[in-house]
Design a protein around this nucleic acid. Sequence first.
DNA 1: GCAGCTTCCTAAAACGTTTTAAGAGGTTTC
DNA 2: GAAACCTCTTAAAACGTTTTAGGAAGCTGC
Lengths: 353, 353
Amino acid sequence: MPAGAAPDAAQAAPATAPPRKPTVIDVARAAGVSPATVSNALNDRRYVDAGTRESVREAARRLGYTPNLRAQRLRTGQADSIALLSAMPFAVAAGPSRLGFLMEIAAVTATLAIERGLALVLVPPLDQPGPALQRLGIDGALVLEPLADDPNVAHLRARGVPVVTIGRQPGAENLAHVDLRSGETATLLLDHLRAAGARRTGLLIGGQPRNSYVETEAAYREFAACHGMPALVRRADEREGEAAGEAMAAAMLAEDPALDALCVPVDAFAVGAVRAVRASGRRVPEDVRLATRYDGLRARNCDPPLTAVDLHLDRIAELAVELMLEQLAGAPPRVSLAPLPDLVPRRSSVPAA
Amino acid sequence: MPAGAAPDAAQAAPATAPPRKPTVIDVARAAGVSPATVSNALNDRRYVDAGTRESVREAARRLGYTPNLRAQRLRTGQADSIALLSAMPFAVAAGPSRLGFLMEIAAVTATLAIERGLALVLVPPLDQPGPALQRLGIDGALVLEPLADDPNVAHLRARGVPVVTIGRQPGAENLAHVDLRSGETATLLLDHLRAAGARRTGLLIGGQPRNSYVETEAAYREFAACHGMPALVRRADEREGEAAGEAMAAAMLAEDPALDALCVPVDAFAVGAVRAVRASGRRVPEDVRLATRYDGLRARNCDPPLTAVDLHLDRIAELAVELMLEQLAGAPPRVSLAPLPDLVPRRSSVPAA
DNA sequence: GCAGCTTCCTAAAACGTTTTAAGAGGTTTC
DNA sequence: GAAACCTCTTAAAACGTTTTAGGAAGCTGC
């Protein structure tokens, strides 16, 4: 900046108006009332004379007044933003397996949040959760399908930030979450496969300690016991994507050649499983029926398209946001039950008509 | 509330401690210093004696003090967060066409932002941009491929929020943006198609006033003139997704049966175009070569996989964040040039070896 | 003529932080 | 021995809003 000019100009002549945003005080002055009345008038609170209200509004409009959010929030103590953390690496290899899932949740959550005056902060997976999370101005956090010992959740809870998880955290007590009802989802898929003619269904799930896998496996074992079916459960590493699914499915088919169906909740694995089935000389769905969980682009674009379930992610996101608002309001953690998913039958389990 | 009980209880016995969050004042009292010193000690500002600093830190830790972000933000005027707005509808039909694109940008941007102490707020497309955006506490906004008269951009600029667009806004002056070099991208694709044997290439772009289409069309017309090729440009409505692409591609093939290639930047349209080509009894790529722009799940999952370009979205996001930081620091708007994209040839333009 | 109710409005006190301006000691410099 | 300059600390003033606790005026009813 120029050396001698500034101080004089600033002191002597505020001729060129300093471009300060108008405040409630400016509006009050302009309308000839008190700041309190301006606040009441603009927020439809208390008794304010209709004429006064109009003139305040008019003054506010004329001055281009917009309330200072930070002041408003300090005063009211209301939340202004929540975070959405994915426990799953953002780019699972180059194959965006969970990307669709996360993104759908993010999209719906962002919409709901914004309608309630909350901003949704997207938090990518971090090497060091601590330092970066700390400086994040959030009032609460939504965590998607956390692992048993999720460091993000631990950090947030230690910090006293309200946490709501979508899908229960294995082993966690007293943590608000939306119960995804993975057991029932699994049963839905298994029943469908059976109705489609399957008599021997294998289960292929992910290797990380996620609650949905635990529940899915339990439901599967019960289903197997119920129907006198031998249980075959295998795990593959989610980080390896479709290839891991293909390899493990091939191993399962080799191990038990009588398998006539595979329940594969992880969509990337399911796509790999289709390849494995074909590589073994069998057909989908005539010889081996397939079903997966998340009905995303991957399931739909697969050849044949994969039978999946509509999890009603919009509703799930809504429940999560509700739980979050409750906690922000000081209520104790609570559990919400997600709606039961609906089956979306496709050609991977039922032959084309 | 009960009539007689409350006042007595409140006045006489705060036996059951009111669970109030500790403030800077509590810490000051505990450490035997003033609030100002607490602030200075915790934020490494000014001269604070090392011993004092430590005892303040200790007191803060003991009391479980965390600064009130709303107060901090009111005082400093900073929100430490920027928004990412997609100008494109979030769920383009049920097929998340741009979802991958936006998500890739969002993931990279979020990571970069967080490393710089900024939170990334995800803003979904809104029916009424005004009211919701107004309630958003952000310091700046990144807008993805804005339309010519984008209401979000208008709103933000009117509000005085620094805006950086990814892809120039058609018609906008003095707006910081990352130049996506869509013209050069188009030329890259057209050259590739020609090298693959195409002699008559049609162009199918989106109908909304987006700068990338303008540049793409210009590059195409120049290419056509250069090679003495008749120009055939058609537009389809992005909101209709693959179906619109299929219908328009079919119309183009009918109109000019000699077409032996289609350049289709919108990936959803390109997938539709594959179907149209086949429906007309032709083969991809032997009879009609196809190329699209964004190399996402859609392009890869298509049958045959679509030739596309690697836009280097990570670098683009980085440039955008840089521009944003500059503006936040008070620098004037500036333009950054994205790196040139790299071709990713696939079977939609070159037959399998 | 005053108690009690309404309706409209306001002064002042929050909310919890950072910053400003200044003060208290102490050391150095002329 | 006063002026100048450190280093450390603090009281008080912001930041811009909402809320609290009344107050003033105009009624009604006795």
